[in-house]
């Protein structure tokens, strides 16, 4: 009985292991469409940093002078990351050789988003909830719907200053 079970166990295991080799069934290998590239990751980090500066200012951990200096520095990094992403998108679109109205529209969407991000980074309307950079004077975040606080919406801490 034990021998029969052992043989069945071996045959079953070997069959399962060799099946992909015999039938050509394959595990997925490449990155999925929704996975980030290195450049996109850098952009994400830059936006995270922007949000952190906002958080620290609102939490009273940064004074206004440091806040302004740091925000300028981080904004520059975020803008550089956005430029890299735009270049990467342009390159990938060119490499794919896609043409036609649909591809152009998608590309235009992306460029519009990048332009909107650039504008919002310059004006500093970063959402405290999700980190999304919103257009200037936004009252609510376009990404998650949260209220954008006045200081970040106006891009100036002078309107409120950090809470106690």
């Amino acid at each position: 009985m034990t021998l029969v079970l052992a043989i069945l166990l071996t045959v079953g295991a070997v069959a399962a292991i060799f099946h992909p080799l015999l039938t050509g069934k394959a595990a997925p290998m490449g990155a999925m469409d929704d996975e980030v590239t290195d450049v996109q990751h850098r952009k994400r980090m830059a936006l995270l940093s922007l949000r952190d500066v906002e958080y620290d200012f609102h939490a009273g951990k940064l004074d206004e002078t440091d806040y302004r200096a740091l925000k300028a520095q981080v904004s520059a990094e975020a803008l550089a990351a956005l430029d890299d992403e735009a270049r990467e998108l342009a390159t990938s679109a060119g490499r794919a050789g896609r043409s036609g109205a649909r591809a152009s529209a998608a590309q235009a969407d992306v460029e519009a988003e990048i332009a909107a991000l650039r504008a919002s980074i310059r004006h500093g309307a970063i959402c405290m909830q999700c980190g999304h950079p919103n257009p200037r004077a936004s009252r609510f975040c376009g990404e998650c719907g949260s209220a954008v606080t006045p200081a970040s919406a106006s891009g100036s801490p002078a309107s409120g200053g950090p809470p106690a």
């Binding site: 952190d52 958080y55 620290d56 939490a59 951990k61 405290m128 999700c130």
Partner: peptide
């Protein structure tokens, strides 16, 4: 990052 105001 500390006591950030929570999200509305």
């Amino acid at each position: 990052s500390g006591s950030s105001p929570p999200p509305p």
